[in-house]
């Protein structure tokens, strides 16, 4: 675990075969091998983003390739008139609750799987893995009926539950392999000191799990933020729309008002891209930690 944390600071020799830049020949191959393809990747990744930003900030009718002159009209329209203020609030609610529930439930479940031996454990693991083959889109119809009979259609809870259910299996598996890597001796020592198991867990395990919690939490936040088909099916009224649903209607109805479409897209993109920027390193480490078991 500590090893993984060290890596996160970037000080470890991560590159297996670092090119030492001593000779100009080496320099050239370095550029050819790394700089050139990297620039190509960067351009291909960023041009679509730039295009959206350009249209979002450029006044209607301008053909400049720079967002100059600059306008916020599209954002004002999207936020106040189209209703992105409401969509945004709904998305935040859904993503936060989905994240919190998924994390709490996966920590509990992951701990049980990692620390206990019980009848049915292997079967449970197989079942969790099998859920990965279940297409969410294809359960739309029965899920709709279930939520309908629970009175949760056109209610954000239906969306939250669906998000949690479809994120859970993977997060539980990841969480259990994280917990497994924490030496049991640490907990034992705490219990010898007179702590209850729960206290031992809170005092010893939880702090160690911080990178895992960041990885899993942000993973589910982004997943819930982006969740579209369930939201489209379960939510009927504009007051409850989340950003992806609102965006899909913007695409459908304002598809000629490019600035509005781009501004809506930017509102949808900024939170996840910012979060991603912060956690990207953790994500790589988090997956790596889980994968290595």
């Amino acid at each position: 675990m500590t090893m993984t944390l060290d890596k996160a600071t970037g000080s470890a020799p991560a590159a297996p075969a670092p090119a030492r830049r001593r000779h100009t020949g080496r320099d050239r191959t370095h550029h050819l091998r790394i700089t050139l393809p990297l620039v190509v990747f960067l351009v291909l990744t960023l041009v679509p983003f730039y295009w959206m930003i350009l249209y979002a900030f450029r006044p209607r009718g301008s053909n400049s390739l720079l967002p100059v002159p600059f306008t916020l009209d599209n954002f004002v329209y999207v936020w106040n008139t189209v209703g992105y203020d409401v969509y945004f609030r709904n998305s935040v609610i859904v993503a936060l609750i989905s994240m919190a529930l998924t994390t709490v439930v996966s920590v509990a479940g992951g701990y049980a799987i990692a620390r206990y031996r019980f009848a049915g454990r292997p079967a449970l693991m197989v079942a969790l893995l099998c859920t990965q083959f279940i297409p969410g889109a294809m359960l739309l119809i029965p899920l709709y009926s279930i939520f309908n009979s629970l009175g949760l259609v056109n209610n954000l809870w239906s969306l939250i539950i669906a998000n949690v259910v479809f994120e859970l299996p993977l997060t539980v598996i990841l969480m259990s392999s994280f917990i497994q890597k924490i030496p049991f001796e640490l907990e034992e020592a705490a219990m010898v000191d007179g702590c209850s198991r729960l206290r031992g867990f809170l005092a010893v395990i939880l702090p160690q799990l911080r990178p895992a919690l960041v990885a899993i939490g942000s993973f589910t936040f982004i997943g819930a933020w982006n969740s579209f088909l369930f939201a489209l099916m379960f939510l009927s009224t504009q007051e409850l729309f989340t950003i992806p649903v609102g965006l899909s209607y913007t695409v459908g109805e304002d598809s000629i008002n490019y600035g509005v479409m781009a501004a809506g897209g930017l509102v949808a993109a900024v939170p996840v891209v910012v979060i991603f920027g912060f956690i990207q390193k953790f994500l790589v480490q988090g997956i790596s930690g889980a994968v290595k078991g």
């Binding site: 309908n148 259609v153 056109n154 009927s236 009224t237 504009q238 209607y249 459908g252 109805e253």
Partner: peptide, 21 residues
């Protein structure tokens, strides 16, 4: 007052009918 998006208004009202809402 609620405004339904025009491309899915039919489906949304159908949904509301089948869920008595």
């Amino acid at each position: 007052f609620l405004s339904l998006p025009s491309d899915s208004a039919l489906q949304k009202i159908n949904t509301a009918i089948s869920s008595d809402s």
